[in-house]
Computed example of a mutant assay.
Amino acid sequence: MTTRQQLAVYDFYTKTIRSTIGLRGFTLQLRVEKAATLDELRQLRAPYLEAVQKAKGRDKAALLAQQLDQLLDTPLPD
């Protein structure tokens, strides 16, 4: 069962991978699409932030880390 929180995290990854990493994020995007649980999406946090930092720098990675952590830590009502 997919929760609203899981969908929100999935959407966040999808939109920001496309806009910040571009085609270099293709493999990461496939991993996001394959993730079946919130925990699996949570495990992609580190590789995602590393890729963002390489593509856009430390400041952008820190900003997106804040947004992602808020989504990961705040359950949304179903």
Results as ranks from 00 to 15, higher is better:
F12E: 01
Q43V: 06
I21V: 07
D39M: 02
P47K: 06
Q43K: 15
R42G: 06
T3H: 02
L28T: 05
Q67P: 00
K34W: 14
A8M: 08
L30N: 12
D69I: 03
E40K: 12
A62P: 05
Q67Y: 03
L41I: 05
T2C: 05
T20S: 12
V52R: 01
D78I: 11
K60F: 11
E40S: 06
G22C: 09
L68R: 03
L30Q: 13
L64A: 06
L76H: 02
S19D: 15
Q67G: 05
K60M: 12
E33F: 06
I17L: 05
T16Y: 09
Q53E: 14
T37H: 11
T14G: 03
L28F: 06
V32N: 06
L63D: 14
Y48I: 02
Q70Y: 15
A36V: 02
L41F: 01
Q29C: 07
V9Y: 08
A36H: 03
A36L: 12
L41G: 01
Q6L: 08
L49S: 06
A61E: 08
D69H: 11
Q29D: 11
D78M: 09
T14L: 06
T16S: 04
A36W: 03
L76Y: 11
D73S: 15
A62N: 13
D69Y: 10
A62W: 03
D73E: 15
M1D: 10
V32H: 04
T16R: 08
S19P: 03
L38F: 01
L49H: 05
L44M: 05
Q70D: 11
P47I: 09
Y10P: 00
Q29R: 11
A51K: 02
R42N: 12
L7Q: 12
G57L: 01
L63H: 12
D39A: 10
K60E: 15
Q70C: 03
T2Y: 11
I21Q: 04
P75L: 14
Q66E: 15
R42K: 15
Q5D: 01
E50K: 13
K56R: 13
A62K: 14
P47F: 05
L72S: 03
Q53T: 10
Y13M: 01
T16V: 10
D78G: 12
E50A: 15
G22D: 03
Q5V: 04
L30F: 04
Y13F: 14
Y48M: 08
A46P: 01
D78T: 08
G57K: 04
V32I: 09
E33K: 15
L76F: 12
E33M: 13
A35G: 08
K34E: 15
D11N: 10
Y48T: 04
L44R: 02
T27M: 13
